[in-house]
């Protein structure tokens, strides 16, 4: 029983982190139709920038607030100068372009911060542990566990209930129509991409006290977040949430029971879902 509970907790924590990363990816796809290969690198950049700020001003929360905003600024730059010219082109061009951005960012990080590993401490408030079933469990993970749904719910609220959110959804559904009623779609897209970047970087900054920071952080995470997004249904918030939790749980329980097959589990999930629900769990069928 206690093994089960701890594994559940492990899986949910990892799932929350995956959710924080995937939610930005799915937002950008849902609104702009762009599948951003560089999303993982922006996640990594969020971790690095937050770490750098925490080094200058030794306070976790300041780093967590400023870091992602700085990265979001870079996101605006990427959208305006690189993505805008390729919106009307095939999705593969967007993939390739963002792949090029990935190459540049990954190497740039290594040039700036060097190839060594870095670690970031959790804030003093969350650095303790609490006991579960005679095993101690880090408070910071439980914080992540609560933070994920908060981010998800606020995003959902933003898109469903606020005027801005509705405008964005309208623009996503029918660009021409939105332009017709006077919505400045290009500026809106910039904003959405900045939001997506901010979310990626926020995930990165939040993951910093959880895992070591190195130049491969983005590469490790990108395929898994692609899987989450596709499994959940491209552009769907609840989909990203369910997909992330499913993958998190699959990996934690897989460690316990799957043995050698474990490495294949995320891909098995992807295949099974796509075969039976071609558009993902929450995707709209055509």
């Amino acid at each position: 029983m206690d093994t089960f509970a701890i594994n559940l907790l492990n899986g949910l924590c990892w799932g929350m982190l995956l959710f924080l990363i995937s939610v930005g990816l799915t937002t950008v796809f849902g609104v702009m139709g762009v599948l951003n290969f560089a999303h993982g690198s922006l996640f990594m950049l969020g971790a690095y920038v937050a770490m750098q700020i925490m080094e200058w001003i030794p306070n976790f929360w300041i780093g967590l607030i400023i870091g992602p905003v700085v990265v979001a600024g870079l996101g605006i730059f990427i959208e305006v100068f690189l993505l805008r010219p390729v919106y009307r082109r095939d999705v593969t061009f967007q993939l390739l372009l963002t792949f090029a951005v990935l190459l540049v960012l990954d190497d740039a990080v290594r040039l700036i911060w060097g190839p060594a590993y870095h670690i970031v401490d959790p804030p003093p408030l969350l650095s303790g542990t609490i006991s579960f079933f005679d095993q101690s469990y880090p408070l910071y993970r439980l914080f992540l566990l609560c933070f994920g749904p908060v981010v998800g719910l606020s995003l959902w609220f933003f898109f469903q209930k606020t005027r801005w959110g509705k405008v964005i959804r309208a623009a996503a559904l029918d660009r021409e129509m939105a332009e017709g009623v006077g919505i400045q779609v290009p500026r809106l897209f910039t904003l959405v991409f900045a939001l997506g970047t901010w979310l990626a970087a926020l995930g990165g900054a939040l993951s910093a006290p959880y895992q070591s920071i190195g130049p491969s952080l983005g590469e490790k995470i990108i395929i898994e977040s692609f899987i989450v997004v596709v499994v959940g249904g491209l552009g769907s918030f609840p989909g990203a949430f369910i997909g992330a939790i499913a993958l998190g749980l699959l990996e934690s329980f897989g460690t316990m029971f799957a043995g050698r097959v474990q490495m294949a589990l995320p891909y098995l999930l992807l295949i099974v879902v796509l075969l039976f629900r071609p558009r993902g769990i929450f995707g709209k069928e055509v």
Binding site: T3, N10, S207, Q211, L217, T255, M256
Partner: peptide, 24 residues
Amino acid sequence: PDDKVAFAPIKTTDFSPYITKIMH
């Protein structure tokens, strides 16, 4: 035996399931 040893793929960043497995 094999079900009580832990081998984590090289891309792993969250080791908590492996740690749990070994501790138990």
